[in-house]
Amino acid sequence: MTLALRLVDLAKTFPVGKRLFGKPKGKVRAVHPVTLDVERGETLGIVGESGCGKSTLARMLVGLLEPTQGHVEIEGAALDTADPALFGKRIQYVFQDPISSLNPRKTIRQIMEAPLRRLHGMKATERQARIREIFDSVNLREEFLDRYPHEFSGGQAQRIGIARALAAQASILVLDEPVSALDVSVQAQVLNLLADLKGEYGLTYLFISHDLAVVEAVCDRIAVLYFGAVVELGRAEDVFRAPLHPYTRLLAESAPVVGRPLTAPEAKETELPDPLNPPSGCAFRTRCPRATERCAAEVPTLETAKSNHQKAACFHPLSD
């Protein structure tokens, strides 16, 4: 297996309370150094709750955000984020809100032509043929091309967003909550389409979502993000069934499942830590029933706890 994508110590820190001159008042570490490998043809799921840094991570991957530290390698070569015409050909992004990712004042044809013209310098006839081919594979009718975005439903607009990403002919797609704005019946259509396209074009997916069940259904491996750091990484079928990290277990137990009685898996008063004033050591320790003094003193790494195919950043993993 060859590597499609490699993240090396990728991290992002945002200044808080900027001033015109001098240093900002504080810093928030949105993403702690993350190192991850994604194999070609794989779907890697990234799950986490709001504010855990999933979107920041995704935007760094596609060059929309400059990392504070570390770099991204695509098929062995470092990603140069300076020229959009270069990185757009290698990695593409599908947005969460399908309607707002389409310019309301452009027709679908204009939107579809932009990547073909700017990234690949195609001629008009070539573009025409390519758009027809792509629209065919995402099950959209060609007559849609001369309409404006507001005329489409969420599911159709998301297909257009996927079609645009395909037009760039990148081999890696970052899917940032691609179905969470859609109704459940449409959500399944889009997920199945993504699975078909992956086979057809040999794509590699980074699938970002807060919906554990969706991630489990479509991914090969899953990385669980908490407070800007990967706390657990493992095969999709294992991560939620047999979690190592207490946070992963909390997530899995919180998801409403038919046939499981309603219980609050953690104390009702618990609150998330304050990003401006993070706890020392493990960020989860204030919510963790297994926390000890060591958790406050040291920061666990993803190599701290390991079983066969699973890794977790925890001193007291659940396998003990």
């Binding site: 935007r59 596609v62 060059g63 929309l64 959009p84 015409a85 757009g88 050909k89 593409q92 992004y93 947005f95 969460q96 809100d97 707002s100 990712s101 389409l102 310019n103 309301p104 004042r105 452009k106 939107i111 932009a114 990547p115 013209r117 700017r118 990234l119 967003g161 645009r164 990403a165 760039a168």
Partner: peptide, 26 residues
Amino acid sequence: HKEFVDAARLSGLSDARIIVSEVLPN
């Protein structure tokens, strides 16, 4: 800060082009 501006950047448009073709019409 709208998503379609990010999408345009990923489609290979330069800043100047984004201003003229994405931002200005709106």
